[in-house]
Design a protein around this nucleic acid. Structure first.
Lengths: 149, 149
DNA sequence: CTGAGTGCAAACGTTTTGCACTTGC
DNA sequence: GCAAGTGCAAAACGTTTGCACTCAG
């Protein structure tokens, strides 16, 4: 993905801080502010928290990125793409896109409700396949997410 | 709805503050903290913000109420009921339950993803039927929500 | 009577702001 | 060169906490 063009295409200047934020979001898929700041400082020690927030807000305002609100969790940010749902594993914290067409549902609900719909937020939570098979594992009781390898 | 039994059934003591909060949520359907505090003070001048927050947290912990996270808006709270989606009108702010069975979608996605799913959050945003017909109305440009009568 | 709930003020964590400096274009 | 972006410190904001008092059961 070309972050320079993405920024310029939305009328934003290209700065190393912004490129760092975007490449992290792209790499991780979805990331919350805390992780973003911790991880960006590793590669970019001088960045300030204020700059990070200003950039998140600027990129949200120009629709370069999107905030995903999640029940009982901090929001995560992702590079904007067409409307899609998300899956959350409450065991290990894995958070992923749903490859599933929600267009049908949206049009059904639109017909039923007479709403003209143009934004969808769908988050399904449960237990991912890997955690189901390791349900007796002690990791289940740790507050810390484990990472599937 | 009997709020006393609802509270006692979840192991919480019955206080006038809690009854006030619950009856407001029930009445309005969904309400955010600011509106809740403003409106509860009208009927219950002495209540403190801290008490309101403590009660919201206590009632969420015991699943009496639920927080609904909404894209680009403050969360709203509702009395807990079985899983259901929500509709938001971006024009007038109307926020309502979707009467639509999402069980089918959830089981489809469960099959596809191999997730064992038990929590759903669905918020669809758009323009409600009434606002579509008054799209030329000046109210469209006001930041304040109008109420359909 | 006792533990849970209340109200106040202080503390806390998160996000925003103002301002001087730097940088992208 | 100039508007936009950065970094710092201070401020603002929403929420939580500690504590003495009150009340529900």
């Amino acid at each position: 993905m070309n972050y320079e063009n993405l920024l310029r295409g939305h009328g934003l200047k290209v700065t190393p801080q912004r490129l760092g934020i975007l490449s992290l979001m792209d790499q991780k898929g979805h990331i919350n502010v805390d992780d973003l700041y911790l991880q960006i400082k590793e590669k970019f020690a001088s960045i300030s928290l204020a700059t990070m927030y200003k950039n998140i807000n600027a990129m949200m305002a120009s629709s370069v990125i999107t905030e995903v609100k999640i029940p009982k969790q901090k929001s995560r940010f992702e590079i904007a793409k067409e409307s899609h749902g998300h899956l959350l594993c409450q065991e290990c914290g894995e958070f992923s896109d749903i490859e599933f067409d929600i267009g049908k549902i949206v049009s059904d609900i639109s017909t039923k409700s007479n709403y003209q719909l143009f934004e969808t937020s769908l988050v399904l939570s449960g237990i991912c396949p890997l955690c189901q098979h390791s349900s007796a594992s002690p990791v289940s009781f740790l507050p810390v997410a484990h990472i599937h390898t």
